[in-house]
């Protein structure tokens, strides 16, 4: 049992997007702040810092989680995926491409969190109904799109993935 002092920084190691990272954090540092300002992964955005808006959602050991209500020290040893993991170089993955095709983003600030939620959701629910998609999406706030394009994009991505699996 190690008690990490609140007044000093501690080494935090985690695998992010398949790559080992080490940074330093006080126990109170939000995971979102650590990813952004310590590791330089600015693709994860912070919208409310109280666990409601969903913009900062990342996958911690595969589980979609608000990174503003988790602390970096908690994720020591964890494997984390952020929006930066999705594309293959310049090539958007099926979900990202569906977002582009369906005008599922405008300002794009909430998008990273939604992409990460949808990634986990489609793994678990490969052929969702629109209602299931909306239910999942209700954990995110988007102020630009009215959600319509996002719903269509996720359904389209599910179709693409289903076809891919069938083939």
């Amino acid at each position: 049992m190690t008690r990490l002092s609140g007044n000093s920084k501690h080494s935090v190691r985690m695998t992010v997007n398949g790559r080992a990272h080490e940074g330093y954090a006080e126990p109170r540092m939000l995971l979102a702040d650590f990813l952004r300002h310590e590791l330089g992964l600015y693709g994860t955005h912070v919208g409310c810092e109280h666990g409601v808006c969903g913009a900062c959602t990342v996958l911690i050991d595969g589980v979609p989680s608000r990174s503003c209500t988790q602390y970096a020290v908690q994720a020591d040893g964890a494997s984390i995926e952020t929006v930066e993991s999705l594309a293959d170089g310049d090539t958007l993955n099926a979900l990202q491409a569906a977002f582009r095709n369906n005008h599922a983003l405008q300002c794009g600030f909430c998008t990273a969190g939604i992409l990460m939620s949808a990634t986990a959701f489609l793994e678990e629910t490969p052929a969702p109904t629109e209602l299931q998609v909306r239910e999942m999406l209700s954990g995110h706030i988007c102020r630009c799109t009215g959600y319509d394009g996002i719903v269509r994009a996720i359904l389209e991505a599910a179709g693409v993935q289903a076809e891919g699996k069938a083939a």
Partner: peptide, 14 residues
Amino acid sequence: DAALLTGSARFIDD
């Protein structure tokens, strides 16, 4: 879209 979807667009806090 591409920059926003890949997390490479830069906002003021970035």
